[in-house]
Every structure is written in structure tokens, then in C-alpha cells.
Write a protein that binds this DNA or RNA. Structure first.
Lengths: 138, 138
DNA sequence: GCTCCACGGTCTACAAAGTGGACCATGGAA
DNA sequence: TTCCATGGTCCACTTTGTAGACCGTGGAGC
């Protein structure tokens, strides 16, 4: 539901894109906040990226990412499962085997993410330069 | 610098995009982590969006976003300034006036962000459905 | 038979990060 | 004289994340 723009709403529109009018505050549904709720945490994005090429088990994922704690990985995966980004399959064997894989929704989410990652990769030198300039000023 | 792919590296590549090979771990420069360092926090993205249409003063920004604390807004702005996304201009008046505006770098960053926000807007129903299904299963 | 390991987690202290509100100096308006 | 607004910082408190112990099961090695 796309309601009329309130005075303080942001009209987030750009070349070649459909315009998007939205509030910034938490009360109404703000798409930016939606995005942040999904990927704004430390780990979700890394998990999705790790699962992109292949289905992985819990402990493999843990080692692949490296510095995530079991608890956070567990939570992150549950939230991603809840939101329909990731599918969890339990094989009732001993020792237990649990596999995580991307759903179509999760896969489609990575599409726009790629653009963002490429941006970061391309503009990293500019960011570094800005930081150096800032340190020099201060 | 784009080094050769280690076995556990993710080859993050998609239709119509330049491939990107990267580690997921924190040691090497992982572009995903770069992105997260920049926008992964609660507020940076909202600040950038708020500043997109117009230059704003500190307290206006504070009220516009609504539920950000002074401290966090202050920190967020300083970090964005440091990274070259935002420009800070102080007018030596009384009471003090400080204005924040986007730099070209900041503006260019919002470009790929738009795609992500549109994704969130478009796929929100699917996410809701996934959540409902999850609750029903549980 | 006895010990040890791997599996996918959860639980529990502890540490780090975020919050809301008080506080600062200044000058203009009421 | 009192009060407000400015752009912050500082402090106590709460929330969030971390590292590591722990769980039950079964198979491998001794």
C-alpha cells in the first residue's frame, strides 16, 4: 500500500527508476527499514552470500564465515528461514545433519545486492581517500 | 586488488554482472563486509535517504528520522563524513547552525541502494507469506 | 568396555553497544 | 528575569552479542 506523501516524506526517485515515496519514521511501513531489518545485522548478508553457490551444513557455514558465534549463526539462520530466504532441511541421522540452502526468494534478493557490492568494490579508493583527508583535517 | 580465489571463497557472479571473487572471512578485504561496515548499522541509510532531497540541520534530521538518539545521530553523521558520504558545514552564528548535505560519493551510493529498496517494496508480500507459513508450521 | 570425537544446537556468564535524558554556553524573545 | 533553541557530550541503565561449557547419541580406536 503506497499512501500519499506526507510533508516530511522522502521522495526517493532516480534516473531510470520507478519513484518511491516513503516515510522515514518507524511508524508507517518504511522500505528502508524493511531492508535494514533483513540485512542490517552483522551476519545475514554473509550467510546468504555463503549459501549462494552451494547448500551447506551448520558447522561448515560456521567455519566458512569464521568469526560468527554459534548463537548468532543459529539466530540468523532462523530469521532467514522465517523470512523465506533460506530453507532448512533436517536429516534424522546420527549424528544429526542439517542443511541450509537458498530459496528462490533469497536468491532473488542477492540480485540487487550485487550492485551494491560492486559499488563498494569500485568506490573503495574514494572512501579511503575521504578518510585520509578527514584525518588530515582533524 | 582482486586476488585469486581461495577454495572457500565465494564467487559472487550473476547474469549481466561482472564476476566478483571474495573471501567471506574478516581477514582479507571482503566487499560484503565493506558494505556492511558502511550501511549495516541502524541509521546510516536513513540519514542518507533523508539528506537526498535536501540539506538539513542536525535537529531537523533528528526530528525527521524520529526515533534516533542524539548520540547515535551524531556518531552516524561523523562516520558518514569521515567516509566522504556527507559534508558538514558549520556557520559560526549564535545559536550555532550546522548543515549536512550529501557529497557526490554519497549520492552515487544511493543509486544501487534504490534497487534494493525497490526489491524490498516489491517482495514484501512474499516475505509476509513466508512468515505466516513459518508460524503455521511452528 | 572405555574414551574420545563430531553433529547441531542451547544456556550462561560476561563484555560491548545503544538509549534516554541531564547538561553545557550563548543570545534573543517574552 | 525567565525561557527557549542551537549542536552536541556525558552518564547511568538496558539491550545485544560473545566465548565457551554443556547436551545426547553413536561410531571409531584401543
Amino acid at each position: 500500500m503506497q499512501s500519499a506523501a506526507a510533508p516530511q516524506d522522502v521522495i526517493f526517485e532516480g534516473p531510470g527508476h520507478t519513484g518511491l515515496t516513503m516515510p522515514l519514521t518507524g511508524e508507517g511501513g518504511c522500505p528502508i527499514r524493511e531492508v535494514l531489518d533483513r540485512i542490517g545485522d552483522q551476519w545475514s548478508l554473509l550467510v546468504l552470500a555463503a549459501l549462494e553457490p552451494e547448500t551447506l551444513r551448520f558447522n561448515v557455514l560456521l567455519r566458512r564465515i569464521g568469526d560468527v558465534s554459534k548463537q548468532m549463526l543459529s539466530r540468523t539462520l532462523r530469521r532467514l528461514e522465517e523470512d523465506g530466504f533460506v530453507e532448512r532441511t533436517v536429516y534424522p541421522e546420527v549424528p544429526p545433519r542439517v542443511e541450509y540452502s537458498l530459496t528462490d526468494l533469497g536468491r532473488s534478493f542477492l540480485e540487487p545486492m550485487r550492485a551494491l557490492i560492486r559499488w563498494a568494490d569500485m568506490h573503495q579508493p574514494e572512501v579511503e581517500a575521504a578518510r585520509a583527508a578527514y584525518r588530515a583535517r582533524a
